[in-house]
Design a binder for these strands. Structure first.
Lengths: 186, 186, 186, 186
DNA sequence: AATGAATGAGCTTTCATTCAT
DNA sequence: GATGAATGAAAGCTCATTCAT
């Protein structure tokens, strides 16, 4: 159903291996790590990496898209919960805790504002919409303060993830969650 | 007190120009920008940059030290205020708002946790101490919740600065400040 | 007479398609164009190209051989004409005009002098012989000056083809033809 | 007086060495030879080559410009001769004989028609003008046929140079020169 | 036989760093 | 001290060729 014919089974597998290796390597040693290194980690030749991702930039973007897709899916799933407030805070905490690697949510989210025109654009919109819905529900339920909008939430997700790099425990996250609660919710 | 003889006046001036140019250039175009570019922006030859900073890493660290020195000084100054609570929050907000350039406080703070052993160590300790004092006063005054420590505050400074990249207004910052307030302070 | 068994009909067709595609692609975009590109133009996989031509070099040579074979055939045909002088000049002009693609006669002829030992050798000899016959007839008929030999004619064919790249009209060709006429022929 | 400050003496020398080495290497082994090889031949590092010529393309163009500059100068010099006819033919023969390397005049002239918009444009015009003057004089003197124009002459220079690759003696050149003579000149 | 994914040597280019001027 | 040309390791990327499907 996609417009490109599906990849052969082995190609599919290699693409996935490259993506996984890239996530690991870039997280562990920074995105400045060479593509050669990524290839080595994936157990393939450099050529294979470039066959699947025509440039390093494209590989990085694929990683971002993958990360954001998970966030969007997660937001949508939480939006189905009957308890809108808990759903929002659960989602927020889980997302921040999930960005445990160095190629953080931070870097993924960075793309949301920075390249609004390229391959990341569709997924960016997806994330924004899913998040907006989740937020609105929680605000209507009186759990989240009304003076924040989606952009603020995204910024705070990035901020909380960043904070986690310095203090990997939950304290900073808790502070931010508390800051988000509606005053009456105390 | 320095172990090197004082620099000649012109050398002193060149060092400062390089530092300023580096801050500007790295902020504007990323730390991957070449040293050549920094030299050009400073109006000196590359050789001069390397004479003052033996490696690019060293230049980056000097920038971090400079940034953190300002933060430490600022913390110490606020610590003299009679109103400990307001002083803490003022300091926090001012620090985050001041990290408006792209070579953010984030990157500076990154060094606090990441390279605790090198040239950055002394200033890191300085910042930590000044911050600890300011925090303790504010907690004793009942303005800041008691379950956060210096490390959390540093993490949240980094987080709030990061958030500012996505939503350059004050909303995310306000959320975090609210999260930091002692419950009874409402 | 060939030492390999005849190709299956579809294989035969594929070989021809590759050859045609290669001529077109190399002419249009230079011989540095990738084999992948040639395969795409031929509507086959790269593997197929390499099955028929064991290396890119071999593919290029096959093209040259094909080109030279046409020249030799043409020369032989003109040699049957009753008017030896006209036959020679007609042949010369037609050959030069026919090298209208970018993978010119020039490049084909280049092989005559450059790789005298490989796959091109037989056809090179064929061309030389056919040309020698045509030339001799024209010289005997008093139409072509006697102080040029086959090698000179080949060089001039290459030269005239080259000239056509810069001035695609007939003027340079006419000049060369005039230069070849026997003095008494005026 | 040039808009760039003159190079330091050693830089000047290295630039010249690179240019000379490039001419030699490309002539001997084709323009596909790696820049690394050129650097080795010049006795410098690759970096030096790229400092002087920002891309391989630029290096090739510099070679072309150098070659064409010589041709233009030569044309202008011959144009001062009292015997216009002899001057033209002398120039033509000398130019063709001078393109003895494989990175021929052919390749240099190729640029005349192919990249009319880049760094080669000014020198291309220079060559054309100098040649036009020389040609016109020779035509007025009744030595060169009147139905050829500058473009034809350039094409024939390229053609004659190409011919020389196959028959390195003077015969093909003589044929072309004869073809250029005015009919009455016999 | 045909396919196209995988390979990896090799190419162009960049840039931190050194050193002659 | 300052300069900027030179260096060469290393990076991103291409492509002829191989081989599992």
């Amino acid at each position: 159903m996609t417009n490109a014919r599906p990849l052969r089974a082995d190609a599919q597998r290699n693409r996935a291996r490259v993506l996984a290796a890239a996530e690991w390597v870039f997280a562990e040693r920074g995105t400045a790590t060479s593509t050669e290194e990524v290839a080595r980690a994936a157990g393939v030749g450099v050529g294979t990496v470039f066959r699947h991702f025509p440039s390093k930039e494209a590989l990085l973007q694929a990683l971002v898209v993958q990360r954001l897709a998970r966030v969007a899916a997660d937001a949508r799933e939480h939006a189905t919960s009957p308890n809108a407030g808990a759903a929002f805070f659960d989602f927020f905490a889980a997302t921040v805790r999930g960005s445990a690697t160095k190629l953080e949510l931070v870097d993924a989210l960075a793309e949301l504002g920075i390249h609004p025109d390229d391959a990341v654009a569709p997924i960016a919109e997806e994330v924004t919409e899913a998040l907006a819905a989740l937020l609105q529900q929680a605000q209507r339920a009186g759990s989240v303060r009304r003076d924040v909008d989606v952009r603020d939430v995204i910024a705070l997700l990035a901020g909380a993830s960043q904070a986690r790099r310095y203090a990997p425990d939950d304290r900073p996250l808790d502070v931010i969650l508390d800051g988000l609660r509606a005053p009456s919710a105390h």
